[in-house]
């Protein structure tokens, strides 16, 4: 029963602080994922471009980012970026997270673009539309829809990965847990509480994506099985 009493008291004492830290976590997630989507889209285009040099650049980027632990990249980019520019910890953290997720999102976009039937591009071109116009008007809207389940997964991973910027002094959710347990001597209970916060965040994200997915389904199969998103 001690455990539950302690948990309750942590909620009472630090609930609001944790909530504030949660807001920072959400901001960090959204900003970094926005950066990641832009990077991802650009490199996905590189990969489907059929231009050797662009493909090589994209492959090199994806190889490096996927081949190293996030914490190593985070430290490297954090000290790297802040030795060149003066950036806030928040900005450095979200750029680093964005560059990391970008590699995975590039692969998601590439896969979904290539999954669209070749005939769609041909139909667009045969009507006199340019490559980029066909991409933007015909291919991307369809591939974006197909990318959503994988994208949702990656977004949830990004949300959880944001906890690692605690180590570069951004006082988001996990950073808060680290410092709280250091002075209340209740690590188990504190991490339990922060775990609950993350769970709820991921749940909200999942619901949001399910909603987005069914909204994009308008006019198409009305009753489609919901795609379950793994936590």
């Amino acid at each position: 029963m001690d455990f539950l009493t302690n948990v309750t008291s942590i909620f009472q004492k630090h609930g609001i602080e944790f909530l504030k830290a949660t807001v920072l976590t959400i901001e960090l997630t959204i900003v970094s994922l926005f950066i990641a989507c832009v990077i991802g889209l650009v490199f996905a285009f590189f990969k489907v471009s059929n231009i050797k040099i662009l493909e090589s650049i994209a492959n090199a980027y994806i190889f490096v980012v996927r081949g190293m632990p996030l914490i190593v990249q985070l430290m490297f980019l954090y000290y790297g970026i802040s030795s060149i520019f003066t950036l806030t910890d928040f900005a450095a953290g979200s750029i680093a997270l964005g560059i990391h997720s970008g590699a995975y999102i590039a692969e998601i976009f590439r896969g979904s673009i290539q999954s669209i039937d070749k005939g769609q591009m041909e139909a667009g071109r045969s009507l006199g539309m340019t490559y980029f116009k066909t991409m933007r008007r015909i291919i991307l809207p369809q591939s974006f829809k197909r990318a959503i389940p994988a994208l949702a997964n990656q977004f949830i991973i990004g949300l959880k990965d944001s906890s690692l910027v605690a180590y570069i002094a951004v006082s988001e959710l996990f950073n808060h847990a680290l410092s709280t347990q250091a002075y209340n001597y209740m690590p188990l209970e504190t991490y339990f509480v922060v775990g609950i916060y993350y769970l709820i965040l991921v749940l909200l994200f999942t619901l949001l994506f399910n909603k987005l997915e069914s909204r994009l389904d308008v006019g198409r199969r009305k009753k489609r099985d919901k795609v379950e998103i793994a936590f």
């Binding site: 039937d117 769609q120 041909e122 139909a123 369809q142 198409r220």
Partner: peptide, 12 residues
Amino acid sequence: GMVFQHFNLFPH
């Protein structure tokens, strides 16, 4: 104008 075997209408 071109008409394809598999129609290639834009499904969205």
